[in-house]
Simulated scan of single mutants.
Amino acid sequence: MADTARPLAVVTGASSGIGLELAKVAAGEGYDLVIAADEPDIEGAAEKLRLKGATVDAITVDLSDVEGAEKFCKFIADKGKPVDILLANAGRGLGKGFLDQDLNEALHVVDTSITGTIALIHKIGNEMRARDEGRILITGSIAGFIPGTYQAVYNGTKAFLNSFSFALREELEDTGVTVSCLMPGATDTRFFECAQMWHGPDSTP
């Protein structure tokens, strides 16, 4: 039988960077965790989080489409506990000028940051609303307020997430579900290296 004494936090994009730090905070606050990323490093992250005394279940899953979000939701449901906090942090960046980018890679940025995120929030948010309790944190960015030369698609996805967060918060204001938007600035993580987001089309880190 599942241990229902500890509340459950779900964190996407938790293999490194901001997502891993959010998961560490949740574990330190007494939450058990279900974490996901689209890379095998998620298993190493799970081991680090277990050192904080949390029960941690990890899955490598591509959250860039509805099918991936549904697979992840089934993985969560199999734990037999309601989601108390959803930390929707999965995202992807991509450098270079837009016309120089591979279109499929650019669309993958959009799908990871937007399509998969709102599919996951739609499912878990409905469950929270039915219980009249729960918290959702969406990782937006101050980049969503800035036209992003050489990272136009990434900044555009963050503009969507910022706006979506504010709207969803208003829609749920008369319920027990809260919605917050995390808006970090540039943060020293592997993100920029992985996204090849430097200062111009020919520059190096």
Rank of each mutant, 00 (worst) to 15 (best):
K48M: 09
L49W: 07
K71M: 04
A37M: 01
A88G: 05
P7Y: 10
M128F: 07
G13V: 08
A27S: 03
L120Y: 09
L20W: 09
R131P: 04
T175Q: 11
E133W: 08
T204K: 13
S113E: 03
G140R: 05
T149E: 15
P184Q: 08
T204D: 14
K81D: 08
S203L: 11
S16K: 14
K96D: 14
L63H: 10
A27V: 09
E70P: 01
T55K: 15
K79R: 15
N104W: 07
D188R: 10
A2S: 12
T157K: 00
T115M: 02
R190L: 09
T157M: 03
T204G: 04
Y150I: 14
I121Y: 09
F145V: 03
I146Q: 10
G17K: 05
L33M: 06
D100V: 00
K24D: 10
C181Q: 10
A37L: 01
T115W: 00
A36L: 04
G148N: 09
M197F: 12
G13H: 04
G144L: 05
G91C: 02
N89V: 13
R129Y: 04
A195S: 14
D57S: 10
V110D: 00
K74Y: 04
C194T: 15
L120E: 06
E21S: 13
G144A: 03
I142R: 02
G44D: 12
E105P: 00
F164M: 01
N126P: 06
I138Q: 03
S141Q: 04
W198A: 01
T60R: 15
G134Q: 11
A88T: 12
L103V: 11
D111V: 05
S165T: 15
G140M: 04
A27C: 03
P82E: 14
K123P: 00
R190S: 13
A152W: 07
I114R: 02
E133N: 11
D100I: 01
P184Y: 09
V177C: 11
S165L: 07
S203W: 13
R131N: 06
I121D: 08
M183F: 03
F98C: 00
A159C: 04
P147W: 07
E170V: 06
R129I: 15
G176D: 13
T4A: 05
F191E: 11
G80W: 06
T204W: 12
G125D: 11
S64K: 05
E193Q: 13
T112Y: 02
R190M: 08
L172P: 05
T139M: 02
D32Q: 02
E171D: 14
D174N: 13
E105H: 04
I138F: 09
G134I: 14
I138G: 04
A46W: 01
A106M: 02
T115A: 05
D38I: 02
A2K: 11
W198P: 03
A36M: 00
A58H: 06
T175P: 12
D174T: 15
V110G: 00
T117I: 08
